[in-house]
Amino acid sequence: MTSLPLPDSALPPVVSPEEWREAHRAMLVKEKEFTRAGDALAAQRRRMPMVRAEKDYRFVGAAGEVGLLDLFEGRRQLLVYRFFYDSDVNGWPDKGCPGCSYLADHVPHLAHLHAWDTSFAMVSPASQDQITRLKEHMGWEGTPWYTLVGDDFSRDFDVPEMFGINVFLRDDHDRVYRTYFVTGRGVESMLPTLGMLDLTALGRQETWEDTPEGRPQLPPYRAERHDEYA
């Protein structure tokens, strides 16, 4: 990727090591406030009520048809990402939604989630044959990915199209409850690339950011499938 022009006037000011450390200390104070605010928000999220998932939602996986409880794989918690992969996607059926593909690239080694008694799965309207081919092409073989049976799950859990993350909890009687849902920029917690860019002087380099004049700024939501970057 070719670097965009960056005139000297757009660069951060150059200061002495002592001045830099003073500015860094001031920034750490604000970052600690931000961290504590995030902790408080997470504490509030843990205190949200939940709603029981009453219907017999069905999915098809590599081993055949299963229910929502099976997606837990015996664990206590479950995150389900609705991946936008159907006939409305540009490049279908060889390609999935660019943004969803960007997120799928960031799914961690699931052993880490499993160690916290939590499972992760993706769901889409596409068939298992189509999903398997895309997983192999994109290198997502380690991520459980199920075919949605019918529209009830998507409609009931606010993902009739596009994308979103639903979070579920299983009690000791195998009753399943929905505890949380997020879409839009709320899924950024799963995208460490953006967090890494936020640490840099140029940031995400998108037009919506509050950025000093002259720094590179391009249209937002530039995430691509990893095999398509120029």
Rank of each mutant, 00 (worst) to 15 (best):
A26C: 12
D151V: 05
D88K: 14
A37I: 06
T193H: 14
P108G: 14
Q130D: 09
Q217F: 04
D151M: 08
Q130C: 02
A37S: 09
K30Q: 12
M27E: 15
S9V: 01
A40N: 10
L11S: 00
H137K: 05
V187T: 15
E22M: 11
G74W: 10
P49Y: 05
M162Q: 08
V15E: 10
L202S: 01
E136R: 00
D8F: 03
P5R: 10
D70C: 10
A111S: 13
L41K: 07
A40E: 12
E228D: 07
R178Y: 04
A115V: 08
M196K: 09
D129T: 02
A23D: 13
L169K: 08
E33D: 12
R76T: 10
I131P: 00
D158R: 08
R45H: 13
H226A: 06
N90Q: 06
V80R: 03
K95G: 02
Y85A: 05
G195A: 13
G64L: 11
D39N: 07
P219N: 02
P212T: 08
V60E: 14
Y81N: 06
W145D: 01
S127V: 09
R204M: 11
W116G: 03
A104V: 02
A23P: 12
M50S: 00
P144I: 06
E136K: 01
Q217D: 08
W140H: 07
S124G: 02
L69I: 13
Q44V: 00
G61I: 05
G96F: 02
N90G: 06
E22Y: 10
L110Q: 10
L71K: 06
E31P: 03
F84R: 05
